[in-house]
Amino acid sequence: MTREDDNFATSASRPDFAAIAGWVKPGAKVLDLGCGDGSLLRYLNKTRKTRGYGVEISDENILACTKNDVNVLQNDLETGLSGFESNSFDYVILSQTLQAMRHSERIMNEMLRVGREAIVTFPNFGYWRHRLELLNGRMPVSGALPYQWFDTPNIHLCTIADFEKFCRDYGMRILERVIMNSSDIIRVLPNWRGTLAVYRVERETSLRDIKAP
């Protein structure tokens, strides 16, 4: 398989990539937090000519990113983004990582300090199957939430409604959102029917003014 094929396969298997790429301006400077094997960065570098950097903690992913020929910095996101200057990126991306972080609010603030805009994706806990499983008395396990309660890295799951309230409470303005289920975009009853939420947000007020509710 050539690298082009490889790239195509990646974008097809991760429909949120295309949604994110649609928002990213060509030539932008992008920081991808928890960038995994670097496929999103590689995709953005290719399709949007971005100047991208990834942050990862795992050795395995650092190696995968290096193989993918993307810039990657080994760092623990929980310690913040102190190695990055304020307003030094156009976009800071947090793809399917927010729900696994201990300090959700701190990382969001940090993202909007370092970047002009933040792009956040997370699995929607409000998806109807998840609600049904809970009604049946069991923790939901699905394609979007593939873990059992005892082995999940996800500690801060939220619904679309939760996230939007969180943004309002913490002074973040939602610029755009795409709610997806597999590769379909869900417009009707998104908090029931969507499995993956993709948001673009910016600071509503300067960081200093942000107060806890």
Partner: peptide
């Protein structure tokens, strides 16, 4: 990074 140079660490 401050110079927007390509770097991996």
């Amino acid at each position: 990074l401050d110079n927007e140079l390509d770097v991996s660490f």
